[in-house]
């Protein structure tokens, strides 16, 4: 396995629990992007806000996945920021869908804190942030 080789420079993020995170983020990318692409292409007028938010969620997920796979300190920091954005998005959209359901004729990925996805959308950024912070402590010398 060539991919197992440790890169001497930079923080390797795809190892151990990071592997599980990449997998889950990959699933969310496919889910959010394909769902919003289909809905925006076929029935955008029905719930433009919900579908746009799903698309944004897909882009954020995509970026985090890419950062995790790429590794390195810069990617780690960017991924951390994106996870915070993601968590804020889940909480904001989740609350929004509960307070004002009429704004959302159709569900988004983040509706009701991601209940339609077994709350994975709200649990994922928390565990990812925990993992990303720990990765730094393990390799404080990484540039």
């Amino acid at each position: 396995m060539t991919t197992v080789e440790e890169k001497p420079a930079g923080t390797r993020l795809v190892s151990g629990p990071g592997m599980l995170l990449v997998w889950l983020y990959g699933v969310m990318v496919v889910g959010a992007v394909s769902r919003s692409a289909y809905q925006i292409a076929t029935e955008f007028d029905r719930a433009p806000l919900a579908y746009s938010l799903s698309a944004v969620a897909g882009v954020v997920y995509g970026f985090i996945t890419y950062s995790l796979v790429r590794g390195g300190e810069t990617a780690r920091r960017l991924a951390l920021v994106c996870c915070a954005v993601e968590l804020a998005g889940v909480l904001a959209v989740g609350t929004w869908t509960l307070v004002d359901p009429s704004a959302f004729p159709d569900a988004t990925v983040w509706s009701k804190y991601g209940m339609g996805y077994v709350f994975v959308p709200v649990l994922l950024p928390l565990s990812a942030m925990y993992w990303l912070r720990r990765s730094r402590k393990q390799q404080p010398e990484a540039v």
Binding site: M1, V4, V14, S15, G16, P17, G18, M19, W23
Partner: peptide
């Protein structure tokens, strides 16, 4: 996809990924 990832991650976390 998860199977391929577990090939590169030869620890318990590869198993967790396949379980997921």
């Amino acid at each position: 996809a998860a199977g391929l990832m577990s090939l590169t991650e030869r620890t318990r976390w590869g198993s967790v990924t396949v379980a997921a």
